[in-house]
Simulated scan of single mutants.
Amino acid sequence: MKKVIIFGGIAVALIAVLIWFGKKNSASPIEYKTEKAFKATIIKKSVATGKVTPLEEVEIKPQIAGIIDKIVVEEGAIVKTGDLLATVRVVPNEQSLTSAKGRINSVQIQLNNTKIQYDRNKKLFDKGVISRQEFESLELSYNQAKNDLRNAQNDYQIIKKGSAGSSGANTNIRATTSGMVVEIPVKKGYQVVETNGFSAGTTIATIADMTKMIFEGKVDESEVGKLVKGTEIEISLGAIENKKFPAVLNFIAPKGTEEAGAVQFKIKADVSLDDEHFIRAGYSANAEIVLERKDSVLSIKESLLQFDRKTELPYVEIKNAEGTFDKKDVKLGTSDGVNVEILEGVTKDDDIKIWNQTSKEEDKKDNI
């Protein structure tokens, strides 16, 4: 009796399995949505990040060391060539001052001795005792001694006051170009160093022409070969929303620099400004550069592409007359990240499988 029950249970289970497989095999195949190729204009762009800076920017440096005594302009002020920016009070070096004073004493002694000789020989020349040539030689030495004394005194005044004149102890720092004062990195009381052959000197102010701005950015080595001087580009500024400024590419660096494992090349472009917006130096900016443009070419959405696991070559699935799909290799052209140009493999009449999206009927069945 037990054996009958066991074999009966096995038979019922087997029949249930066969019924389930029958229903599974009789179910209709999954139906996928399709799309057709279309004509589109594909524009491939590159985005370079950087900033906008003045085309002409001049750093004003002192010609003598000292301490900032007064600053007479503020950042943002418009100045012209020759306008006073600041004054520097000279703090003389004691060793140099002592040396200059000692040179004055030495030259004064030489002058006194030469004057005695000159006065004595002038009397002899007036009496006709010595020749004119001999007297003129002594006169030349006397005049040279007087000139040496004046030079030594001037050197002493320059070391002590910063000027050989009688203008006082302040040295005036003036603008060497016209424009806007964009930066004053010093304050009253700061010690500054003059420009010379051993030092670049301390920058007292930076003056720039804010009506002429350029974009400076970097592009990757994979895209720099497609850039051409004179190309029109668009500049977007982080500080100004929904506004693009036209620019013209005028410089592409002949040498790149490695950054984070990638080689970057510097580019520059002249930016066209308008009267509505004031562009400040140092604004962060992005430049949109058209690398390639294809007008009215046969295209499909990139989402329709599939890639062979072994060859990694692209293909699509085309619907045939029986309602199934055939694999078709394709040759691709330009892509803008959304649409891609089709060179070979697909016609405008082909129904291309949307491989990751099924029909609404199948979606309803899955939900049930």
Results as ranks from 00 to 15, higher is better:
T334L: 15
S299Y: 00
D349P: 05
N339T: 13
Y315T: 06
G337F: 15
V340T: 12
S335P: 10
G323I: 13
V271N: 03
R280G: 05
R293D: 02
D329Y: 11
E317S: 12
G282C: 04
V330A: 11
S272M: 03
L273V: 03
Y315C: 07
V330S: 09
K328V: 10
E344C: 04
N339I: 10
R293E: 15
K331M: 08
L291V: 02
S335W: 15
V330T: 07
D275A: 10
S272E: 04
H277E: 00
F307T: 06
I289H: 00
K328M: 12
S335F: 11
G337D: 08
D336F: 07
A285D: 04
E312F: 14
S299N: 01
S299Q: 08
V330M: 07
E276R: 04
E276F: 02
D295H: 04
I342F: 08
L305C: 07
L332S: 10
K327P: 12
I279M: 00
K294I: 01
K301W: 07
G337S: 09
S335V: 10
T324D: 11
P314L: 04
S303K: 14
S296Q: 09
V316C: 05
N286C: 01
G282S: 06
K319Q: 15
I300E: 08
S296R: 10
S303P: 02
E341L: 03
K294D: 04
S296C: 00
P314F: 05
E312Y: 14
I318W: 10
R309N: 05
D275R: 05
I342P: 11
I279G: 04
V346M: 03
K301C: 04
E312P: 01
G345C: 09
S296D: 14
D295Y: 02
R280T: 01
L273D: 05
L273F: 01
R309K: 09
Y315V: 11
N320Y: 01
V346H: 10
S284Q: 07
L313F: 07
Q306V: 00
V330Q: 09
E276A: 08
E322R: 14
K294N: 06
D326N: 15
E317A: 05
E276G: 00
Y283T: 00
K328P: 01
F278P: 00
F278C: 00
R280P: 00
P314S: 08
F307I: 11
K319E: 14
D308L: 03
K348M: 15
G333P: 12
D270M: 05
R280C: 03
E288N: 03
L273C: 03
T347D: 14
D308E: 09
E317F: 02
S272T: 09
V338P: 05
G323K: 12
